[in-house]
Amino acid sequence: MAAHADKPDTFDPFGIAASMNEWCCLVKAARELKDVDEEMMETMLEANATGPASLSPEAGVKLRSLVNLMRSLNLDPEAIRRRDPETMRELETACLRCTERSRCARELWAGTAAYPEFCPNAAGIDRLRGQ
Rank of each mutant, 00 (worst) to 15 (best):
M1L: 13
A3K: 14
H4E: 11
A5P: 14
A5T: 09
D6R: 14
D6T: 08
K7D: 04
T10C: 04
F11N: 11
P13V: 05
P13N: 08
F14V: 09
A18N: 08
A18K: 10
S19R: 15
S19V: 00
N21R: 14
N21W: 10
N21F: 14
N21T: 15
E22G: 02
E22T: 10
W23N: 11
C24S: 10
C24M: 12
C24Q: 14
C25D: 06
L26P: 00
V27D: 11
V27K: 11
K28C: 05
A29I: 02
A29G: 03
A30V: 03
L33Q: 12
K34A: 15
D35V: 06
V36C: 07
V36M: 12
V36W: 10
D37I: 00
E38N: 08
E38H: 10
E39F: 10
M40K: 13
E42M: 10
E42C: 04
E42A: 13
T43I: 05
T43W: 02
T43E: 13
T43G: 05
M44N: 12
A47D: 07
N48V: 05
A49M: 04
G51D: 12
P52I: 08
A53P: 01
A53L: 12
A53C: 07
L55W: 05
E58G: 05
G60E: 12
V61H: 13
K62F: 09
K62I: 06
L63V: 01
L63G: 00
L63P: 00
R64I: 00
L69M: 11
M70K: 00
R71Q: 15
S72Y: 04
L73S: 08
N74G: 00
L75W: 03
L75E: 04
D76K: 01
D76C: 04
P77N: 07
E78I: 15
E78D: 07
A79I: 00
R81V: 00
R81M: 06
R82I: 00
R83E: 15
D84S: 14
P85W: 05
E90Q: 12
E90C: 07
E90T: 14
L91P: 03
T93I: 03
A94E: 11
C95W: 03
C95P: 02
L96Q: 12
R97W: 03
R97I: 04
R97L: 09
T99Y: 07
T99K: 12
R101F: 03
R101M: 05
S102L: 06
C104W: 03
A105Y: 06
A105N: 13
E107C: 10
W109G: 13
A110V: 02
G111E: 06
A113H: 05
A114Y: 02
Y115T: 06
P116E: 10
E117T: 09
F118Y: 15
F118P: 11
C119L: 01
A122D: 07
A122S: 13
A123T: 05
A123F: 04
G124P: 02
R127V: 01
R127G: 03
R127I: 00
R127S: 11
L128V: 01
R129T: 04
R129P: 01
G130Q: 08
Q131F: 10
